[in-house]
Amino acid sequence: MRVHVDPSKCQGHNRCYALAPELFDVDDYGNAFERNDGVVPAGLEDKARLALANCPEFAISIEE
């Protein structure tokens, strides 16, 4: 599984970083990006889905 934050949609709500810091990080401006090229380590799939389900800007996508 891979996650991706669309930087043109992200407005820095920081929901993904709060819910799944293993998968997402934020820059100095508070905008999010995926860690580790978006590769989701085994066992963290639910966290990836949780982040997607809580992004108010619909900026996160998942490739299964």
Partner: peptide
């Protein structure tokens, strides 16, 4: 609630600048 894309801090370019502090 697991799925919660609420808009309390706004949507788009004016997203609340203080949202991290408010939370």
């Amino acid at each position: 609630r697991e799925e919660n894309r609420h808009a309390a801090f706004g949507l788009g370019i004016h997203r609340c600048l203080g949202s991290n502090l408010a939370r």
